[in-house]
Amino acid sequence: MTSNLPTAPCQVAGRFGLLERRLRRYHPRFQRAVRALAARHPRLADLAASFPALLFALAVPRARLDPARAIACVIDGAALAEVAALADLPVWLRKLPPEAFVRPIPRLPDGELFRRQIANHLPRSPELAPTWLQLVADAAELAHEPMAAWVAREFLREPRPVATARLRLICLWAWFSSQPATLGHDLIDRPWTPDLRIDAARSATNDWRTVVALHANLGRLPIVDMWLRPGRMAGYEFMPLDSIAAIAAEAKAMRNCLRSYGYNLAHNRSRLWSMQRDGERVATLKIACRARDPLPNIVELKGAGNVEVSREVWWAARQWLHRHDLSQIDMRQYDWATAPLDRTSWLSLWRPYWLAKRSIPDWLPIAPSREALEAL
């Protein structure tokens, strides 16, 4: 009688072939380190099939992580969960393929709820896995575990929009969404929630950044020199939009983009006014230089929703403007990007984040920085 069981040499060859195919799948830059560790003991080599992330983490440890004890435990036959804990590696990484690891594995979230959530959002494509893993790690570090789970889900739904999004900014917005006692939270119109899709999140984040920039540019004190004086003409009241509160109220009531004017106002390029009648807002004015004319002009005059206004409104605005001695108005402008940001607002905005994260990252420095604000 002959047996259908493979002979011992065939079993060894088959096992060797499987491990070799797995080892080949690691990134070429780390092949030597991974293979060197796998060659030290069969149980280490077996990790290439049973727990590719663990083999990689032990061969290419992150900074300040000594893998010696974990390696010894693998050789002694310890349970994989025990070894993973020594390597500070979540067990949920066990299902990721070797292609996922293209740099030392960073710290990753591993809360009980996160483990249940992430099981539904693991990448099936080896090509997507490295970007997915880095985005999850970044979101956890920049915001929190719920944000990391959200990023994992959204990246699998729409990889390109998530990969090209301004993740730092979205994570800041998401973090402040859960911090009600902060200025950053107060400036949010639409907070982050786990059910949002990436497009809605990007839109809400951009709105928040616009208001953040307005505060950083103008600060809490009103604009002292509005160039012109409040007054009344032909039944219309001309009211200065000289503070963040006034600008925000006008923008909301008139459904326009005034909140984006912080940069322009800080560089002394324009002034904003509200035109009202019987307590009702009629139009919003932008006063600035036109072309090479050094004197103030009405460069924009729009009704609610940026609709055109009547000749009557234009005529009243012209009469009010020319009531002033325009030759005496000082309209000296700052060169672009040279007006300082408001330090008090900058510190009020970001201090809660620095304290919570116990660090002041280079991308969000303690000194007010236009470069950092633009890079968010």
Rank of each mutant, 00 (worst) to 15 (best):
W173L: 08
A174S: 12
T210L: 04
W150E: 02
T164S: 12
L214N: 01
L196V: 14
A200D: 14
R197L: 13
L214Q: 02
S178T: 15
G184H: 02
D189W: 11
A163F: 00
I198F: 05
I198E: 02
H215T: 06
R202C: 11
A204L: 05
F155A: 02
R157Y: 02
H185K: 05
P161I: 11
R220K: 09
R153F: 04
A213E: 13
A163T: 06
V211I: 15
I198P: 05
T193N: 08
W208C: 03
N206P: 00
V162W: 06
S177K: 05
E158L: 13
G219Q: 06
R157C: 04
P194N: 10
L196K: 15
S178E: 15
G219I: 05
L169W: 03
C171L: 03
R220D: 15
L172I: 08
L142Q: 13
A165E: 08
R153W: 07
A213T: 11
T193C: 10
N206G: 07
A140P: 03
P161L: 09
L167N: 08
L169V: 01
Q179H: 11
C171Y: 00
T205K: 02
A140M: 05
T182Y: 07
P161F: 13
L218S: 01
S203D: 14
G219A: 08
F155Q: 04
R160T: 12
R197C: 10
V162C: 09
L214A: 04
L187M: 14
A200P: 00
T210G: 03
R202L: 10
W173Y: 13
H215K: 05
E145M: 07
R153D: 05
R209W: 15
T164N: 10
Q179F: 02
A216Y: 02
R190V: 14
E154R: 15
C171D: 00
A174W: 07
W192L: 03
V151G: 03
